[in-house]
């Protein structure tokens, strides 16, 4: 965690979460949420030092191919099958400030919609050269980038005929544990987005659109890979100096 030491530390409490923007816990169209959602109200408190702080990861945790899903599971000289894409963007906070040193982890199905997981049994085949996980850390401007193949849609046992849109799962660490976030990225123009019960757990259309990565033609690499841009916003933190902090935390 040493390569973040020259960054000016931020110690303000976080903006409250807008829980009408996020999906509610109980969203019966997504059936599994019915028995896995708390029924009692959350206990609300301003952030304490336990949430203002959080783990920060150095580049030493990363391997050379960790942000290249086309090759990080492939046999030497081979590569994953599918539409080659670059996914890139910035991690910002609600104040628009870049979040440097943020660890991003991502996972996805292969081009046919098949996950490499021992509990997954969809009949679409595995790709022997595709694992489906990657990770990276944002630079000083909050920028990240990885290379992968575009995942396929896949069916799941919710309704009789529910299919997930093509998506990539993202897990993000900011600087405070209160910023911890897991979400999913969808692809511009995919008609499956508006049929999906998991997307539909989000009540606000504008919030759903925040999860849809546009085709970024300018960053497409000719004769190689198209690009999608996906910016991520984490909770902001208060900047006021007038905080009651007798212990200096």
């Amino acid at each position: 965690m040493s390569d973040t030491e020259n960054r000016r530390p931020e110690t303000g409490a976080f903006f409250q979460r807008d829980r009408n923007w996020h999906p509610p816990a109980f969203a019966p169209g997504y059936k599994t949420s019915v028995l896995r959602s708390p029924q009692k109200a959350l206990l609300s408190l301003d952030s304490t030092i336990s949430e203002i702080t959080g783990p920060v990861f150095g580049h030493s945790v990363l391997g050379e191919l960790d942000n290249d899903l086309i090759h990080n599971f492939a046999k030497a000289g081979e590569s994953a099958i599918g539409e080659r894409i670059i996914v890139h963007g910035r991690v910002l906070d609600e104040r628009g400030r870049p979040v440097a040193g943020a660890l991003l982890e991502f996972w996805q199905a292969n081009a046919g919609g098949r996950y490499r997981h021992k509990k997954e049994s969809y009949l679409a085949p595995l790709d022997p050269n595709f694992g489906g996980c990657g990770r990276t850390i944002t630079d000083e401007n909050g920028y990240y980038c990885f290379r992968t193949i575009r995942p396929g849609a896949y069916p799941w046992p919710n309704g009789v005929n529910d299919w997930r849109p093509a998506h990539i799962h993202f897990s993000i660490f900011g600087h405070g544990f209160a910023q911890r976030l897991i979400t999913q990225m969808y692809f511009e123009g995919d008609p499956m987005i508006w049929k999906c019960p998991i997307v539909g757990t989000i009540p606000d259309r504008g919030a759903i659109e925040q999860l849809i990565a546009p085709l970024d033609w300018a960053n497409t690499i000719p004769m190689d890979a198209r690009a999608y841009k996906f910016d991520i916003v984490l909770r902001g933190r208060r900047s006021t100096l007038f905080e009651n902090r007798p212990e200096g935390n």
Partner: peptide, 29 residues
Amino acid sequence: YLKETPSQTAGPYVHIGLTPNFGGLSGVY
């Protein structure tokens, strides 16, 4: 101010991304 990116479920295959070796995906990390 920007809006926070909305959350979505981690799903049943969260292990692939966060604990791949546990989920039977070895050889990457």
